[in-house]
Design a protein around this nucleic acid. Structure first.
Length: 315
DNA sequence: CTCGATCCCTGGACGC
DNA sequence: TGCGTCCAGGGATCGA
């Protein structure tokens, strides 16, 4: 599940692999996750990939203006542009030799001028691809919050402590901070000893600063280790990351807290599975964690938890 | 403003 | 072995 460290890892890999290459042609598969598929086919060929940047969980391929030979075919729209790529849950983007058989769920192939193809595969198609001009890109990026790696103590506190939402929801909100997802939210809350269901307004300035430092430290370490590979994250060279070995909360339901040995619990906060230590991260109010997993976990949940939020079995 | 619910989508895990 | 069901989750959207 690509979050900031995974996207950064992919962006770095891509930078190594395809910087300066020119796109010769575009082949598309399923296009329901692409903003304007025709725009890709029309405007990408002839452009050079001049930079690969990361913006939150997005990757930005900066494309050159169209050169003289191909200018005629572009209806005057030859200015520099960008390709915005979001990997969603299962998106992967990597170059491979053009002759190689296509992986399943390959939906975009950009033929490059060195005989390779930049391929985008995405089983669930929760990702997004958009061709954007200078103006549309600016509009697109305007709504995003601070970069968690750069955000100052003051700005972080301002963005968190005046909000009545739960801290977990705030961390996941891309208009508050750009790039944090479920894994790194839980990991930083565990490190900072803050329960995910606490409200932003209830956090002290000290809490906020502890959290900011935890978040930054964890993101930096995760980038060094090339991200977390839970199920299917692979970088631009097809390699998994290593940070999942360092997870202290995420996915560890029922396992012992690395600090106090108490069993890690899971609860739904902000609509997402949230893992936390009930002892190190004291719950605000009577916030109920889900029953601990066991042989009959499913049954226990269905029967016991009362109004479970997501069993409206589509009849 | 904040919440929960719903949808998108597929593969993998699990129960029977 | 196979079938059905649940679940993962980022983000958009809608109604309370």
């Amino acid at each position: 599940m690509p979050e900031l460290p995974e996207v950064e890892t992919v962006a770095r890999g891509l930078r190594q692999a395809i910087l300066g290459r020119r796109i010769l042609s575009v082949t598309l598969g399923k296009t329901d996750f692409i903003d304007d598929p025709a725009a890709l086919e029309q405007h990408l060929p002839g452009r050079q990939i001049e930079a690969v940047e990361r913006y939150g969980k997005f990757m930005l391929l900066r494309l050159s203006a169209v050169n003289e030979e191909t200018r005629a075919a572009t209806n005057g729209d030859a200015a520099p542009a960008s390709l915005l790529v979001h990997l969603g849950m299962t998106g992967q983007i990597a170059p491979s030799p053009a002759g190689q058989p296509l992986e399943k769920h390959t939906h975009v192939c950009l033929l490059l001028d060195d005989g390779r193809e930049l391929r985008y595969t995405d089983a669930r198609r929760f990702g997004r691809i958009a061709y954007l001009t200078k103006t549309s890109l600016a509009e697109e990026l305007a709504g995003f919050g601070a970069d968690p790696l750069e955000v100052s103590k003051e700005e972080f506190a301002n963005r968190i402590c005046e909000r009545r939402a739960r801290i977990k929801a705030l961390l996941l909100d891309q208009s508050v901070l750009r790039g944090v997802g479920n894994i790194y939210a839980d990991e930083s809350l565990w490190r900072a000893r803050i329960h995910p269901a606490r409200l932003g307004t209830k956090l002290s300035g000290k809490d906020a600063e502890t959290l900011r430092r935890a978040l930054q430290d964890i993101l930096r370490k995760a980038i060094v280790l090339r991200g977390s590979s839970i199920s299917d994250f692979l970088d631009a060279a097809g390699e998994p990351g290593e940070y999942q070995r360092h997870h202290r909360a995420y996915g560890r339901e029922g396992k012992k807290c690395y600090r106090c040995k108490t069993a890690i619990r899971r609860a739904i906060v902000a609509g997402r599975s949230s893992y936390f230590c009930p002892r190190c991260q004291p719950s605000p109010r009577s916030f109920a964690a889900l029953p601990l997993p066991g042989k009959n976990r499913r049954k226990a949940e269905r029967r016991g938890a009362g109004k479970s939020p997501r069993n409206t079995g589509k009849s």
